[in-house]
């Protein structure tokens, strides 16, 4: 959210934002974080709508889309996933909305393909691990190998590449794979190369992975595509070491 709101406050065209999400913990968390961050970063941005809808129960998102368009919003932020994401996104675009829609999960698993041409330039996705452009030739090779082995799937969870690498490093450093406490201690504060480019750091205080986060836009004519379609995600904004400056209130207890 920090990265997402950074890119919103940098965009001069956005002064009104509409928040909509599924009525459960993640949807609420997205809305709260967006309100908090936008308010702190740029007070002139107005939240013109903040709304939750029942999860998996809405058959037709058109009325929500109508409200969004009528509110005069320049951008939408949603944490929706699955069919709620597609239904909402399609309804918003069809209702004549022209601004960006910021999302977390609006790619792959048929979603990119379903949005297709309509999603180009509108669907934005926040994530770690950008493919277009990619961070290195190794990334290209990795993605191509994955696509060759699993033609019907995409790398939708790029963090897994880092998770396994960091875990392997920690096990080597601790010299044990069965005693978890030394492994955890080794992970704490670890800073290493991010497979997707740049660095990645496990902040010691709260165990958050600090890394580059990308805001990507649905686009066509890219090197790495999703859903066996002609569309993929292109990096629009790169936020380096996102949230590194965020204070933490974490007071977790650690085993001896």
């Amino acid at each position: 959210m920090d990265a997402l709101t950074d890119s919103i406050v940098q965009n001069e065209d956005i002064s009104k934002v509409y928040l909509i999400g599924q009525d459960y913990s993640f949807g609420k968390a997205v809305a709260e974080a967006a309100q908090r961050d936008l308010g702190a970063k740029k007070a002139s941005i107005e939240i013109v709508g903040n709304e939750l809808h029942p999860i998996g129960k809405v058959k037709d998102f058109t009325p929500y889309a109508r409200k969004i368009v009528s509110s005069g919003a320049d951008a939408v932020i949603t944490g929706n996933w699955g069919s709620d994401m597609v239904g909402l996104g399609k309804a918003i675009i069809e209702a004549g909305f022209t601004g960006p829609i910021y999302t977390y999960y609006a790619a792959s698993n048929g979603i990119t393909r379903t949005f297709g041409e309509a999603g180009v330039g509108k669907i934005n996705l926040v994530g770690e691990g950008a493919l277009n452009p990619s961070g290195s030739p190794e990334v290209d090779a990795y993605v191509e190998a994955f696509e060759a082995k699993y033609p019907d799937h995409d790398i939708s969870q790029p963090r897994i590449a880092n998770v396994v690498r960091m875990l392997a490093l920690a096990i080597e450093e601790a010299g044990t794979a069965t005693d978890v406490i030394p492994v955890a201690k080794a992970l704490e504060g670890m800073e290493t190369d991010n497979f997707w480019g740049g660095k990645i750091k496990m902040r010691a205080e709260d165990h958050q992975a600090i890394q580059d986060v990308y805001v990507m836009e649905q686009a066509t004519g890219l090197k790495h595509l999703l859903d066996n379609s002609n569309f993929g995600l292109e990096t629009a904004v790169k936020v380096e070491m996102a949230s590194a400056d965020m204070p933490t209130t974490c007071e977790m207890e650690r085993p001896e």
Partner: peptide, 13 residues
């Protein structure tokens, strides 16, 4: 095409 074509569409409606 409007409401989405996915395995849960029957259940939803």
């Amino acid at each position: 095409p409007v409401l989405g074509t996915f395995p849960g569409m029957a259940f939803v409606l």
